[in-house]
């Protein structure tokens, strides 16, 4: 176990690429910032997994059904691992985190506050949203100062990369399909483009503790820009129109510049009053309540096994 006599000493350790482990006596504020960040990530994986789950019966064909099923397991599995890391920080138990989520008292990513209307929305999530998540997770993983989180992110990133590959294949199917299929994705893109821009977060605060302590390693603006440079040309190449009338290429640098972002929708999702927040949270709550008998049975079975052993 390591301990630091002052915050300055801790920050010097962080600045020298030190990795903090759960057994270390970390500064309280580092612990709370880290906890909030991982709790939100865990909540988002869970809410994302539930979105995915809704499409298992509706996926077109057996191959897509298998893919959707596996992706649901991935997201729920990621949430499980992340809740373990978060709970280990000793601020809230896993049950407390879930209770706060189901009571609308904690946050999850803005993109899961919107309604999924069609299969094309599901493809937009697999292709656009997963890529946005991957962009931010890679930036966290690159030099994250917290050991257990970094180790999980390595696997999460590998799995999200595989989802994107599936997402791109599903997108190609729609892009190269009939006019109706093409239009279906265009409509989904019209719905999801701005939420994805919001996903990277509002303009950076000055002295962001998450950056300072290497809980993440790039600003929201930098990550959004990285994403725009990569995905605008790809969407154009597939023949889609990005729903931003002010989107243009800077004549000097050749870089894509997006129009002004309206932050009101992001504020609504952060306050859990987005377009589909109430229904999403209620559905998650109902699922948790209805599955309580499974948890009870598992616990009873484990207790019996222990008694016998």
């Amino acid at each position: 176990m390591r301990s630091w006599s002052s915050l300055d000493e801790f920050e010097a350790f962080i600045a020298a690429d030190g990795i903090v482990e759960p057994v270390d006596d970390m500064p309280h504020q580092y612990r709370t910032e880290l906890f909030r960040f991982i709790e939100m990530h865990a909540n988002s994986e869970l809410m994302g997994g539930l979105t995915e789950r809704d499409y298992i019966p509706r996926a077109p064909g057996l191959v897509r059904k298998l893919g959707t099923l596996a992706k649901t397991q991935d997201e729920i599995g990621h949430a499980h691992l992340l809740y373990m890391v978060a709970a280990d920080l000793g601020i809230k138990t896993r049950d407390e985190m879930l209770e706060d989520l189901y009571e609308g008292r904690s946050k999850f990513h803005n993109v899961f506050h919107y309604r999924v209307h069609t299969w094309a929305d599901q493809v937009a999530i697999a292709y656009l949203v997963d890529a946005a998540a991957l962009t931010t997770q890679q930036a966290v993983f690159k030099d994250c100062s917290y050991g257990p989180y970094r180790r999980i992110l390595k696997r999460v990133i590998a799995e999200e990369g595989f989802h994107m590959r599936q997402g791109e294949e599903m997108l190609l199917r729609l892009a190269d399909g009939t006019r109706a299929q093409h239009d279906l994705f265009q409509e989904a893109l019209d719905r999801w483009w701005w939420p994805v821009m919001h996903f990277f977060g509002p303009p950076s605060k000055e002295n962001d503790l998450l950056l300072r302590w290497r809980i993440k390693s790039a600003t929201n603006e930098a990550l959004r820009d990285r994403y725009v440079q990569k995905f605008v040309p790809q969407l154009h190449a597939y023949g889609f129109v990005v729903p931003d009338p002010d989107l243009h290429q800077d004549p000097a640098t050749g870089k894509w510049v997006i129009g002004e972002i309206d932050w009101d929708p992001l504020r609504d999702t952060q306050a859990n009053v987005g377009p589909d927040s109430a229904r999403r949270i209620a559905t998650a709550r109902r699922g948790w309540d209805e599955a309580s008998w499974v948890r009870d049975a598992l616990e009873a079975s484990a207790a019996t096994a222990q008694g016998a052993g």
Binding site: M84, R155, E159
Partner: peptide, 24 residues
Amino acid sequence: DVSPFGPTACRAVAYCPECRNPIE
């Protein structure tokens, strides 16, 4: 052992109480 089900069909979830890392 924590759970026979992990993020993929081929992996289970466990926990190391020594270093306090979740592992698969």
